[in-house]
Structure formats: C-alpha cells, structure tokens
Design a protein around this nucleic acid. Sequence first.
RNA 1: CGGGGCGUAGCGCAGUCUGGUAGCGCGCCAGCUUUGGGAGCUGGAUGUCGAAGGUUCAAAUCCUUUCGCCCCGACCA
Length: 487
Amino acid sequence: MAEEKGKITPQSQDFPQWYQDVIREADLAEVAKVVKGCMVIKPHGYAIWEKIQADLDKRFKATGHKNAYFPMLIPMSFLTKEAEHVEGFAPEVAVVTHAGGKKLPEGEEYAIRPTSETIIGHFFGKWIESHRDLPLLINQWANVIRWELHTRMFLRTTEFLWQEGHTAHANHDESMEEVMRMLNVYGDFAESVMAMPVIRGQKTESEKFAGAASTFCIEAMMRDGKALQAGTSHDLGQNFGKAFDVKFQTESGQVDYVWQTSWGVSTRLVGALVMSHSDDTGLILPPKLAPIHAVIVPIYRKTEERAAVLEAGHKLAADIREKGFCVEIDDRDGKRPGDKFYEWERKGVPMRIELGPRDIAAGTAVTKLRVGGEKVPRSLATLASDLPAVMDGFQAFLLDRAKQFRAENTVTVDSWKEFLEVFEAGQSKFVWAHWDGSRETEAAVKEETKVTIRCIPLPGQGPDSEPGACVKTGKPSACRVLFAKAY
RNA sequence: CGGGGCGUAGCGCAGUCUGGUAGCGCGCCAGCUUUGGGAGCUGGAUGUCGAAGGUUCAAAUCCUUUCGCCCCGACCA
C-alpha cells in the first residue's frame, strides 16, 4: 500500500494501486474518510465532470429533452410499487427515519434516491393525460446514494453524480427508438469526446436493470483488459406505467399505459477516462475534456529575462485563448521548470509549452504533447493557429491508440479450456464466445471464473453473427456474446 | 456479518517486546544561491501518540473497555 506522495505505482505492478495513485497525483479527488464510502471531487476532477456534463447536456437538448429536478427524498412506499425494482434496490437504499428532532411515523420514512424512476413515474402520472402529452422527454442532473459495500473512487462510491433521462411514449416502437437513440448518444460521446471506443449491446436477463424490460449498455475496455459499463439505456416497457398508473388516452380514444425509458451516465465516466488513457507518468486527458489544453512554463535566469519571458508568455496565452483553448502560465517562483513539467504531466494537460530566452530570440516556443511526442519548436506567430489541428490530432491519436489496445486484447474463443486460459491469474480480455442463452450457464461461468457476460452485441458491434456451440455447455447458440471481467 | 491488519506532525512511518525528555523522511514556512526534465544549503513551525478508564514515582509503551479505518469473502452505475 504505497500511499507515498509523488509516486505512481506502475500499471504492470498493481493496477488498482496505479489507479488510486493517478487520481491522487492528478489531484482529481480524495476519499472523504469522514463520510463512509464518499469522495471529495477536487477542482481538477470536477472540471472534467463539468466538461462531460456540458457536452452531454447539449446532446440531450439536441435530441429534444428538457432538464428538470425532482426531490432527493422519495417516499418509501414509492420504491415498493414495482416488484423487481424493490428487490434490486432495497439492500442499498439509505433511509431517513428521523427529521425535525423526531422519529418519523411508521410508513412515512423517506428513501434517499438511489435512482428516480419511482418519483418521476409518480409525477408523469399527474402530467400525462393524452397522447398529445407524449412523448415526454425529461432529463435530471442529480446526485444519488447507494449503500455499496465496496467503494472505489469514481467507479463506485456511496454518493455519486449522474444524469438520468426519463421519458414516456405512446407505444413500444417509439420508446425503443428512444432507448437506441440515447444509447447511440452515449456511444458517440464516448468515442468522439472521451476517445474511448465502446461496444453497444444488450444486457442479459440477470444483468439488466431492476424493473426494466430490457437494458442496453456501452462497454469499454480499461487498460487492464477489464470491462467497464460506461452507460445504460433501459426499456422500461409499461412496468412503471402500471405501477404508477401513468395512463393516457390514445388517438382512437382508448386508455393505455405509457411506455417508458430511462438512461444514465455518472461520474464513473471520469474513472473510465483515467483507466482508458493514462500511463505510469499520470493522467492523460483527451483535448475535448481537458480543463487546461496547454500550459506555458516560462524559463529564465535573471530578472530581466523573467520580465521578457512572461510578457511573451502572456501574449502567446492571449493568442491561444482567442482560438478557444484554455491555457495557463505557470509563473510560480521557487519551483523549477523540471518540477513543473512533471506536475502538469501528472495532471494530464495535453500540451506543454516551454518558453525561454533562447525561444524568444528565435521567435519560437518548444512544445511537447503529453504522449509519445518529441519536443517540437513552433513559431510564436503561428502556434495558436496551429493548435486546433494539433489538438484534433492528439484527440484522434488517443482514440486510435485505445482502439488498437482493445483489438490486441480481444479474442474469439471456442473451447472452455481456451476460455479458462484467457482469464487465468486475474487476467482479463474481451472474449467473443458462444453462449447457450441460459441463466444457469451464465451463473456457472461467473461462479467458476468471475467472468460475466458484458453484453449481447447489437448488429455490427461484434463478430458477424453465426450460430455455434456454447463455450461452456456445447448447446446451440445463435451468436457470440461479450465475456469479460468487469468493474 | 465472518477472517486479517492498522490508528504516533499535513502525508508516509519508526519507537511499543524490555515503561524514563516525542523521533525520522517527505511536505510546509523564511532567507540566500538556483531555474531548458523532479534544486542545494542554513534556519524554523507543527503532536490531546484514536478515545476513556486502570496499574505505576513515571505510560505512545503494560492491563481493561471503546471508537474508527483499511484489506479479503456475499450486492452493484
């Protein structure tokens, strides 16, 4: 347990420790300690979440959704209305039993929301009367609490921040269209903004959301070969419509229950970002989510040099800001340039710009990208205008690298022996293998290997669909599914 | 809830067996010299030794009680 400041445990030595070290050294967050299972998201970490929020929020609005906010306290009775939903969430719900200095009367306790299907369902019931009120497309940015036993920063904490979309539709075709639309919003976001390739698929019965008719997800590969569910989109069918009596009058005058969906991503995405790109030097951020795109490190010896360098630095910073990028000048005295280089690398800033007397004389600055780059001198006159292309290139580089990593760690497996070999000694890869479709087989595989079915791929997301024999039982299978160890 | 471990300066730890002035490293503060890949020297500040009780001339150290945290096993975005 090397909690030593300034040190990052190599990935290859201890991946979970590496993850903690990167978060600490990049100053993203810290374990709250005084509050069980919770974390403090520090400014640099929160800035990344704000970038994620801003981009997603735009996408939600572009697809017709409106933001709203519902109470964090939910009457306990609401949670019990949908049978599978209670069963799924009961063990991890925190309940308010006392308020106003008194114990609340029996049956009047409140749950702190673990998710909002129930309370939103209740209000949908009040708001929806006619097919003319549909579709109703709502999103909420909120915090939720789930009393988890094992917590890990960003990946699983007692309280986390998320976004939950809740929609109601007049028929199943329309609600399914919404489920897929939002799954694709998440998929596109993951790939084009987070530079994180994902596989879109459907969850098996045992992995689906409690109370959903079906659950769809995007699954990403972390740098240890494990899978991380990065987003979900649920077809709720009419389950919550019936539980909360959300009825509407159809065009033909009949009365029907609404068809609902819900979909969400959380601050877990910050953890996904860390584990998708970062290395033994620290955090690596794709430009589209970097709170700081470039940092200027001034270099000088004498006071006159300092003044000249800082002046040139501020001018360069102004040029860069004009192009829409965020740049910082690290003019702290008493810290030497080398120390600053390491610090900004740990924080994942995509580009470093060194500016010293030699550069100013030559009209250049020395630039270096966070990954794989040589030091490149660039003209002060064109640096800012070159930046959009450079950042786009870096963004594309990270996506390509992640795709390549995933390709190298994805295998097609046809025998149980081979399956065991892939996952032995705590290893994980993405494995495409046949499955007989039974809950029992899925459970047996999990029991024996801790490997789960991450998803049944949507068309084009996995190998070409061809029938085969289940890797575990040999029984017939319609297509290959994605197996992996998961977070 | 079962098994294991740990609480001493902001962080990481030594000291506990064998009771006797509260220590080390990093960080922090001040000054000088430094500054193109983690600076050096000098000086300085910081502790209810997790908490309560007991034994003793004397407790971080021994005894009792208690609280908290971490790791491993059953749930999960």
